[in-house]
Design a protein around this nucleic acid. Structure first.
Lengths: 141, 141
DNA sequence: GTTTATGCAAATTCTTTGCAATACT
DNA sequence: AGTATTGCAAAGAATTTGCATAAAC
């Protein structure tokens, strides 16, 4: 991976380059599945404070560098926004998410989009979120 | 509504008829949107303990009388299982959920089903969960 | 009478806030 | 230098656990 990818991302979103942010972005880039706060806490137990990690996620979410990935668990998970939406203010995450019941990871299936759904009269749809669950290619081998 | 519907449901799932369970089932039956623990706490503040309500939800979920509804908030919400899946061990909640950003309620849109999605080779899909959000008919009037 | 559910107290876990010290540009 | 970020302490929520009492069957 390009060693400057983290820096580029922070630049792009007008965020200061701090050690914590660089490391967290690198962590997101290195994992292809959605990340929860607890994952960061485990990964950076001795490097950064719990609170800083909460604030980093919050900032990243507000700036749009990451998006929330819905999951059937309690805690929210996040993933980097695909480059397609990275520059837009109005994000469109109309891709499918897949939760593997074996490894527990939730991944973005970015090349599959959510089909058009027609709801009964009166509903105004603004966002779509499709979570499929089952067994991922890795675990079904 | 049939006044014995609560009793029937508890019978059906082999649960003892306690005041708390009867009242919580009745509450679920009376609301057409998904319920969080906090909703029960508000509704039954002076009648049942917070802990009892947690345990009631847990039991109902384990027995399959309710299911978890996806939401973009932190706290989990639950809804009664539609009768179609109530008797099965292997639940299939392949209907659409709609979250209204105005009133905040998440409802099951039971007559709309999730279309077939073909994932890349290797994925085994077991469950589908589609959450649409926007404005519900009530709030868009 | 035996088993299961409840209430209360308390422990854990999760998340947020305030503020002084530090790092970034 | 000026502004934003971090770490620590502490507050506030949310959720779980243990155990004695009470209710269900």
């Amino acid at each position: 991976m390009n060693p400057n990818k983290q820096q580029e991302l922070l630049d792009q979103f007008k965020l200061r380059h701090t050690t914590c942010r660089l490391d967290v972005v690198a962590f997101f880039l290195s994992k292809k599945f959605a990340i929860a706060h607890i994952d960061l806490e485990h990964a950076f137990k001795h490097q950064f404070d719990r609170v800083t990690l909460y604030r980093t996620l919050k900032t990243f979410l507000e700036k749009g560098i990451i998006h929330k990935v819905l999951d059937d668990e309690g805690t929210p998970k996040y993933a980097l926004c695909p480059s397609a939406c990275a520059h837009l203010h109005h994000h469109h995450h109309d891709h499918v998410h897949f939760k593997c019941n074996v490894c527990g990871h939730t991944t973005c299936v970015e090349d599959i989009f959510i089909p058009q759904i027609t709801l009964p009269q009166g509903f105004k749809v603004e966002e779509k979120n499709l979570l499929l669950s089952g067994v991922c290619p890795n675990c079904s081998k």
